[in-house]
């Protein structure tokens, strides 16, 4: 287990390093960042001044290592637009996004795991068909459009929920649903196939031959094994959700990191965008790292070699 953990940790670190390089390099792809910063109307002299001020004239690798060194110390530079530290800015916005993400993944799991289990117990039954129908529909529903439709119906027509802001828990209901429904079909399908597979194994037959009661067979013997891959998927989906929060937060004016991303992208605020990509990626890496550990812990075949 220790060897496994160390191996995964080394891999995670290497991925993080690569991601940091890409997120740094991405923004140097196109034109001169100095021009982007100064704006289209700036004079050549202004651009040159900015270039020197921010060190854009140095070789890109030098700039990268400089940036990386400071990033490692928690300094992601200063926002062009907000004129504050990027780290402070992100730190201030992250809790909202985290709350949203946790709510959304919880919502998705609570919706999809029971549905997947129910569908697997009776394949081709009404429940199974309904679950399949919902998952096919869910995957085809563009989240931004779904969000707008919810606003039109729940907030405006029925006046049930507030449309924007993040003051009360009610403000989180619609964003949670919008962010969570998109992850639900994948989790539902994996739970279903996992359960179906496990239910046809020899050890489930053994459990039944032992005379164990159906709930024990189902939840102790079957679900325990079927849930292992679902944990990984849920972690991956959680990571995707944070990335997807940009759409949801923008629509519901939820002042989280996703909204910050939209603000900084539309304002060419390069350091903030870089910082956000890095933070989101790192979060994903940490998440999948822990998911792997949980997986190994859940599965004795990996835990005890």
């Amino acid at each position: 287990m220790l060897y496994y953990t160390l191996k995964r940790l080394a891999l995670a670190a290497l991925v993080a390093l690569t991601v940091s390089f890409i997120s740094f390099g991405l923004l140097y792809l196109s034109s001169d960042p100095a021009i982007a910063m100064a704006g289209e109307t700036a004079s050549d002299a202004d651009i040159e001044a900015i270039r020197q001020l921010y060190g854009f004239d140095r070789p890109i690798l030098v700039q990268y290592f400089d940036w990386l060194q400071r990033a490692a110390a928690g300094d992601l530079g200063k926002s062009y637009y907000f004129r504050t530290d990027v780290s402070a800015l992100i730190g201030e916005r992250l809790p909202t996004t985290m709350t949203l993400g946790v709510c959304a993944i919880t919502f998705a799991i609570l919706l999809s795991v029971p549905l997947g289990v129910a569908a697997a117990i009776r394949p081709n039954s009404l429940v199974d068909r309904i679950a399949l129908f919902l998952s096919v529909m869910g995957q085809a529903l563009p989240s931004f459009w779904f969000a707008l439709m919810l606003i039109v119906f729940l907030s405006v027509s029925l006046r049930l929920l507030p449309t924007s802001g993040s003051d009360t828990w009610l403000h989180f209901v619609m964003p949670t649903v919008v962010l969570g429904y998109y992850a639900a079909p994948a989790i539902m399908r994996l739970t279903r196939t996992g359960m179906l597979e496990v239910l046809s194994t020899d050890y489930i037959r053994t459990a039944r031959a032992k005379g164990l009661r159906p709930p024990v067979v189902l939840f102790k013997h079957a679900l325990r094994n079927a849930i292992i891959p679902v944990v990984s998927l849920a972690a991956v989906q959680f990571g995707f959700m944070l990335g997807g929060s940009i759409v949801v937060e923008t629509i519901f004016a939820l002042h989280g990191a996703g909204f910050l991303a939209w603000e900084s992208i539309t304002r060419n605020d390069l350091p903030t965008v870089q910082g956000l990509i890095l933070v989101f990626s790192l979060f994903y890496i940490v998440l999948t790292f822990f998911a792997d550990l949980i997986n190994a812990w859940l599965d004795p075949r990996i835990r005890i070699k």
Binding site: V15, L26, S31, G239, N268, V273
Partner: peptide, 14 residues
């Protein structure tokens, strides 16, 4: 590990 929407938005913006 890279958030698709964010990266796509950033690149298109640039």
């Amino acid at each position: 590990s890279m958030p698709v929407v964010l990266v796509a938005l950033a690149v298109v913006a640039i």
